[in-house]
Each structure stands twice: as structure tokens, then as C-alpha cells.
Nucleic acid binder design. Structure first.
Length: 495
RNA sequence: GACAAGGUGGCUGAAUGGUAAAGGCAACAGUCUGCAAAACUGUUUUUUACGAGUUCGAAUCUCGUCCUUGUCUCCA
């Protein structure tokens, strides 16, 4: 019996704006597509948060026993800088600026993306397809949409006819907009003469003479439109209809709206059963933007090399911080928040270590393990509510610390069960790692510190507190914190 | 300007009609300690931006005001 058969998972569906019981199309299998990054610069921290939310979701679905095919694309074809005809592929632009081949840019930032995600302990997706690797599939979809009469060609470019589509379908059902409002509120931009209506979006764009990235097509040498790659790749790997499609809130319109339109136009089916949107990350209460300096790179969190940070933080601390908020809430990133999360994270990790060394005690278990476990699963089943889960985990932390002090009891089999559950929630599902509190990662270090601990204890026995305090304080200054307990002295690293 | 989401204690962040609002951090007290730190125990924020309304009852629903964030052009 799979775990998912005894859990009722509810997911907030952006399409219906309500929580719905999750039921995959094929029992036991889940198809999930998440819009990946455009690799024209270092991965944005907000981006990391979004992907982290879906990493946790991927982990939980897998934990429940589902066979998950998780597709997250790499956008390496770039998109238009603006809507004008002379619009330039943003990757091509960066390439010219840095005197590099476009694919060199793609390579550099793809590597950066993977490196950063690895630091944060992400699970790799099942498939990570690239836009440039699926030009043929994209051209095929353009052909289908033209054939169905929902697109038109002008001067070598092909546009999606939004108004025509809206006559038979509902353009705007995801973002809750209606086409009339869009018509009224669309800004007038230069160079839109090719389009019948400003709302129409490009499926294929003819490349200008200087445009480096280009592919042959029935209409022109050019490049695919902004929204097409996700339709092409999700269809190819997950089918015309699949379970979950995720991305950042800002992709809801127009990107995801257009994906729905393309799919409905080409295939006649609405592609996705559960649309999920992760919310934004702000920095010190403000939108992150390079132009205002209100920005921080993920790598800078580890080094502390940023004006917004007082010190560096372990990747797991940042992960813990993000998991303390619900994925659909706006989360504010700040030094104070990180500092507080670090303390909480260390407390949790200490308890995990304590738990591993715990022995059974007493003739009954003085903790309602079944109820606790139920609460943990209920939290995750309620639209992946990780903050509630973490609150529940701290209930267990309290109990673990009481066990350590002999103020609570636990039976052998319950101890085993507690260990398994805590490991599953903390490491497997939340994806946290024991970082920054390692005490025994180096035999040399622990040997040296043990020696100093012994010297200090001798000094204390002789009431030579000047010496003992010197050892303690100077070790602390070096980032080694000594902890006197009932069973002697242990230490942990604070840096 | 239009549309959408939101404004909860010193900080962070849950809870969407019902037993003086979870958890983390901070603060304070006690246990422990040679003194600390760590750990444990307990305490503190009587209140949900502001104003009005609906209700037996609202943080939660409605209206207005102020503010924040997002989308409306590529964007997680």
C-alpha cells in the first residue's frame, strides 16, 4: 500500500482559486512541469525560492509514493527585449555586450544555475529540456495553430489571434482578466503594425539581419515566440494533458495564459489540471531590482559578501528560512530574518543529532506519536503548508530534549518510528542538510578540541578559572562553542 | 491609471466565522554552572493598518480610507 492512498492531499489551484483534492490523471503517477530560468545572467534569488517550493513539492509527492516525472526547462533561446520589430533576443544582446557566442552565455549561466541549486540541496528534475533543443517541435505547434485558424502570418512572423480565439474559448480564465479590459488597458507601443491587435502574441518571429540566434522555418529564418517552448516541451514529455504546472506568480499573465491558449488552439484540450503559482520574494520589504541596488545574488548569501548581510549563511539556513513561509505568501528576505532562522535551524539540527544518540527509556512513551505524525502529514496535505509542519517539528524537538534530560520516556519501537519520521520530514521532504553545526566532520579538529576540553576541565578542577575561561572564550571567538552538559562537554561550530 | 494579492505581537510568520491568535527569534525569571554559554521549565505581547457595517459571535464576510507587493512589455 502506497502512502498516497492513506493521505488526502489538497492543492490550491490557481485556475479555480480554491483548494482541491489532488487526483492524478494516471493513478500512482504525477506529471509536473515548472517553468525554468532564462539563462542570460546569474539565477535570481526569487527564482531560487520558486524552484525550492517545487523541489519540496517534488520531494513530498515522491515521499508519498508517486512516480513523478518532473520537467523543468532551461530557456536558452532568449526572448524579445521589447515588442518592437527590431526587438533583440536578450541572450544575443548579452552575447554582443560580452563579446561571446550566445551559447557561451547559455553555458556559463546554466552551470551557475546548477551550481547554486546543488548548494541548496535541490533534487534534479527528471527531465531538463532546452528551448533550442525543441525548435522543430515548436514549429510543428505553430503549424497546428495556423491550421486550426487561430494564427496568422505577416511578413515572415506568425501571431496568435487572441480575439478570434476568445470567440470560442476563454482567454483570461487563469489570470481572471477579460479581453475587453485588456483591449482598453494595453499601452500603445511602437512597431506593432504587424499585429491585428495589441493582445496578439508572437508564435514565430522573423529574425532581423543582426539577430544571431535563428532557425529556418516555413515562414522565415527566425526564432520561436515567448510562450511556445513550454507548450512544446510539456506536451512532448508529459502529454497534451498533465497534472501540475508550476511557476512564479509573475508568469501567470501573460505566459501561462498564453500556454493555455496555445494548447487549446492546437490540441483542443486544456493542458493542465492543477496550476500552482509561487509568490514573490522581497528584500527588506521592497521588490528586488538590480537597477535600485535592492538585490542580492544567491551566492552572496553563503559568503556574506553583500551590503544587505552582516555575515554569511549556510545554504540550509536559507532553505529553512524559506520553508518557514508558505509558498503562496510573499516572503521578505532580510538579515534579521536570516539570523533568527539560523538559530532555529541550529536548534533543529542539534535535536536531530540528539535523536540519533537517544536510547529507549521507561515503560511507556510519554508523547502521542500517532497524533503528532498525523499533524505533520495534515500540514503537508493542506497545500504543502511547511510553516505548520515546522511548528510541529519543534513539538518533537521539545520532546527529544526532554528525553535527553530524562524528563520523558520512549519505548524502543516508538523511538525507531520517531527517528524515521523526523528524518523523512527534515531531510527527505524539507531537503535540509546538517550544515554549520558539524562537530565531527574532521577527526583532526575534534581531536584538537577534545584536547582543549580536557585541559580546560583540569584547570576547572584546580579552580584555575582564568585558564579555563581563556580556553572557552578564545575557542568561542574562533567559532567553536563549548557546551557543558550532564555527561561532560561537547562542542559545535558556529561559523 | 486598470486588475490582482496582501497589511497579524519587538522581529519573523501561521491561523480565513466560534473555546482571551501556532511555531521560530528576541526579552525576562527559574533549574543547571565556579561564573557563563548550551539545554530544560515558566512568563511576557488582551490583539489582527484605520474607520464603518453584517452577525449571537470576525483577524477571517461587506464598504470606504491609507499603505505594501505583483501583473498590465521579457521576467520565478
Amino acid at each position: 500500500m502506497k502512502l498516497y492512498q492513506e493521505q488526502e492531499l489538497k492543492i490550491y489551484n490557481s485556475l479555480t482559486n480554491q483548494k482541491e483534492v489532488f487526483k492524478p490523471i494516471n493513478e500512482g503517477h504525477v506529471g509536473m512541469y515548472v517553468c525554468g530560468p532564462t539563462v542570460y545572467s546569474n539565477v535570481h534569488l526569487g527564482n531560487v525560492r520558486t524552484f525550492m517550493s517545487f523541489d519540496m513539492i517534488f520531494r513530498y509527492l515522491t515521499h508519498l509514493g508517486y512516480k513523478v516525472r518532473y520537467v523543468r526547462n532551461i530557456t536558452d533561446a532568449g526572448h524579445l527585449e521589447n515588442d518592437a520589430d527590431e526587438g533583440e533576443d536578450r541572450i544575443a544582446k548579452k552575447a554582443r555586450l560580452e563579446q561571446l557566442e550566445p551559447m557561451e552565455i547559455v553555458q556559463r549561466y546554466t552551470v551557475d544555475f546548477h551550481t547554486i541549486l546543488q548548494k541548496f540541496n535541490f533534487k534534479p528534475p527528471s527531465i531538463e529540456p532546452t528551448a533550442t533543443g525543441h525548435i522543430i517541435e515548436q514549429i510543428e505547434i505553430v503549424k497546428e495553430i495556423i491550421k486550426k485558424g487561430f494564427a496568422y502570418e505577416v511578413n515572415g512572423s506568425v501571431y496568435f489571434d487572441v480575439l478570434k480565439f476568445n470567440e470560442t474559448n476563454d482567454y483570461g480564465k487563469l489570470s481572471k482578466r477579460n479581453v475587453e479590459d485588456l483591449v482598453h488597458n494595453t499601452r500603445t507601443l511602437d512597431g506593432q503594425t504587424d499585429k491585428k491587435n495589441p493582445q496578439d502574441f508572437a508564435l514565430w518571429k522573423k529574425a532581423g539581419e543582426n539577430h544571431i540566434m535563428r532557425w529556418p522555418s516555413p515562414w522565415s529564418d527566425g526564432f520561436p515566440g515567448w510562450h511556445l517552448e513550454c507548450t512544446a516541451m510539456s506536451t512532448k514529455y508529459l502529454g497534451e494533458q498533465f497534472d501540475i504546472h508550476g511557476g512564479g506568480m509573475d508568469l501567470k499573465f501573460p505566459h501561462h495564459e498564453c500556454e493555455i491558449a496555445q494548447n487549446e488552439a492546437a490540441k483542443g484540450t486544456s493542458p493542465v489540471n492543477y496550476w500552482m503559482h509561487a509568490n514573490m520574494l522581497t528584500l527588506n520589504g521592497k521588490k528586488m531590482a538590480k537597477s535600485t541596488g535592492n538585490n542580492i545574488l544567491p551566492g552572496e548569501i553563503f559568503t556574506g559578501n553583500s551590503k544587505h548581510l552582516s555575515k554569511g549563511f549556510a545554504p540550509s539556513v536559507a532553505r529553512f528560512f524559506m520553508m518557514q513561509a508558505h509558498y503562496r505568501s510573499i516572503l521578505d528576505f532580510s538579515n534579521d530574518a536570516l539570523l533568527a532562522s539560523e538559530k532555529g535551524f541550529n536548534k533543529l539540527m542539534e535535536a536531530m543529532k540528539t535523536l540519533d544518540e537517544l536510547q529507549p527509556s521507561g515503560d511507556k512513551t510519554s508523547f502521542n506519536l500517532a497524533v503528532w505524525k498525523r499533524n505533520c502529514y495534515d500540514a503537508l496535505n493542506d497545500d504543502f503548508n511547511t510553516p505548520i509542519l515546522i511548528a510541529d517539528l519543534f513539538e518533537a524537538v521539545k520532546y527529544i530534549n526532554q528525553l535527553k534530560d530524562g524528563k520523558a520516556t520512549i519505548l524502543t519501537e516508538d523511538l525507531q518510528s520517531l527517528k524515521e519520521s523526523m528524518h523523512a520530514f527534515v531531510f527527505e521532504i524539507l531537503g535540509l542538510e546538517e550544515q554549520s553545526v558539524t562537530s565531527d566532520d574532521s577527526n583532526t579538529l575534534s581531536g584538537v578540541v577534545d584536547l582543549l576540553i580536557n585541559l580546560r576541565n583540569e584547570a576547572r578542577a584546580n579552580k584555575d578559572f582564568a585558564t579555563s575561561d581563556k580556553i572557552r572564550d578564545e575557542l568561542a571567538a574562533l567559532g567553536v562553542q563549548l557546551k557543558d552538559g550532564k555527561d561532560g562537554t561537547s562542542f559545535s561550530l558556529t561559523k
